[in-house]
Simulated assay, not measured.
Amino acid sequence: MIAYIFPGQGSQTKGMGGTLFEEFKQLTMQADGVLGYSIKELCLEDPQSKLSQTQYTQPALYIVNALSYLHKIQETGKKPDFAAGHSLGEYNALFAAGAFDFETGLRVVKKRGELMSQATGGGMAAVIGLDEEQITAVLQQNQLQNIEIANYNSPSQIVISGLKTDIDQAKVVFERIKGVQMFIPLKTSGAFHSRYMTEAKNKFAVFLDNFKFSELAITVIANVYARPYKQSAIKQTLIEQLTSPVKWNESIKNLLSLGEMEFEEIGPGRVLTGLVQRIKRESDL
């Protein structure tokens, strides 16, 4: 069995997409029409250094992931058995499964990026070396209860999310803790996948009201539940995703429990490939 996995924010790099924009000229033109700027120029040259800004990052990654997927399908002539994506990447998993067409997905992602970019004053950081229970204990013992776990990336790589001031305070605390290998502040504008995204979530819910989703042709694993998407709950799951943690570790474990599973990362970078290897190693799978 094959599972295609799609990366999210953090995997963007200048030069991503390469020859895909020429290969898929029609879709590239369509994307430019929706966005109002040249996606090829943004990804390949990034002349105004906007690629790292959420409202630009998310559409850019969605497009490159989607074109990478279409290229892969043309190359192999077959679709995967399962699809999953990390946060923003989940939209590409749904695109691969036929939930919406390229342009509809882009319109939704563009709005998501805009709303998420408006949530300022937040921060995120990766804590490497501690498990979920240990991190929760540290947060409670140090009165850092406004910080939440945002991503369960692997058993010992967990991302926390909260106000920037609290994340700065947490850095001092965690760097003193035995067992913490690294504390890495992430380059994000907001406290994604936490209660601080509630306003964005509410506005996104209103926006999504106008959309209908098609029947899924491939099983897609949802970040929110680490279980397959329910057709009737696609909209609600995408809304919940903004404030819920990304259960990547559990999602991969559940896919591995189904039998012989091959994972292929579709899009720029190899972040998720590394996480899958880490999950297997740390879980003795």
Score class of each variant (00 low, 15 high):
residue 76 T to Y: 06
residue 10 G to W: 07
residue 136 T to D: 03
residue 263 F to S: 13
residue 279 I to H: 04
residue 200 A to Y: 06
residue 59 P to G: 01
residue 105 G to Q: 09
residue 212 K to P: 10
residue 76 T to K: 06
residue 34 V to W: 01
residue 239 I to A: 11
residue 76 T to V: 12
residue 265 E to L: 12
residue 228 P to D: 11
residue 112 R to V: 14
residue 137 A to Y: 13
residue 204 F to Q: 13
residue 226 A to R: 03
residue 205 A to T: 12
residue 228 P to Q: 06
residue 256 L to F: 12
residue 48 Q to C: 00
residue 188 T to S: 06
residue 265 E to Y: 10
residue 268 P to Y: 08
residue 41 E to F: 00
residue 257 S to F: 08
residue 189 S to I: 07
residue 246 V to H: 11
residue 176 R to F: 03
residue 51 L to Y: 01
residue 169 Q to Y: 04
residue 248 W to G: 07
residue 274 G to Q: 11
residue 269 G to N: 14
residue 269 G to R: 13
residue 163 L to H: 02
residue 144 L to H: 06
residue 196 Y to E: 09
residue 171 K to C: 03
residue 139 L to K: 03
residue 78 K to P: 08
residue 108 V to F: 07
residue 141 Q to V: 06
residue 154 S to N: 10
residue 271 V to K: 15
residue 20 L to S: 08
residue 168 D to P: 05
residue 122 G to E: 11
residue 233 A to Q: 05
residue 83 A to C: 10
residue 30 Q to C: 00
residue 4 Y to D: 15
residue 180 V to L: 06
residue 184 I to Q: 04
residue 42 L to D: 00
residue 257 S to Q: 15
residue 275 L to K: 09
residue 231 Q to M: 01
residue 4 Y to R: 15
residue 18 G to E: 12
residue 146 N to G: 04
residue 238 L to F: 11
residue 154 S to P: 07
residue 74 Q to T: 06
residue 111 K to C: 12
residue 210 N to D: 06
residue 252 I to R: 11
residue 170 A to I: 03
residue 94 L to K: 04
residue 113 G to R: 08
residue 168 D to S: 09
residue 80 P to L: 07
residue 20 L to K: 14
residue 107 R to E: 14
residue 44 L to P: 04
residue 200 A to P: 11
residue 195 R to A: 07
residue 13 T to Y: 11
residue 11 S to N: 15
residue 202 N to K: 09
residue 10 G to T: 14
residue 93 A to Y: 02
residue 233 A to R: 04
residue 182 M to Y: 02
residue 116 M to L: 12
residue 26 Q to T: 05
residue 129 G to C: 13
residue 231 Q to F: 00
residue 76 T to D: 05
residue 161 S to H: 05
residue 283 S to C: 09
residue 257 S to H: 14
residue 171 K to S: 09
residue 81 D to T: 13
residue 276 V to F: 06
residue 220 V to L: 02
residue 239 I to N: 13
residue 218 I to K: 09
residue 260 E to C: 12
residue 158 I to A: 02
residue 34 V to K: 04
residue 243 T to W: 08
residue 212 K to Y: 08
residue 96 A to V: 09
residue 27 L to Y: 00
residue 13 T to W: 05
residue 132 E to F: 09
residue 85 G to Y: 04
residue 69 Y to N: 10
residue 274 G to E: 09
residue 207 F to Y: 14
residue 133 E to T: 14
residue 68 S to W: 03
residue 183 F to C: 05
residue 172 V to N: 06
residue 118 Q to K: 14
residue 125 A to T: 15
residue 177 I to R: 08
residue 256 L to V: 15
residue 280 K to L: 09
residue 260 E to P: 14
residue 241 Q to I: 08
residue 159 V to G: 02
residue 127 V to A: 05
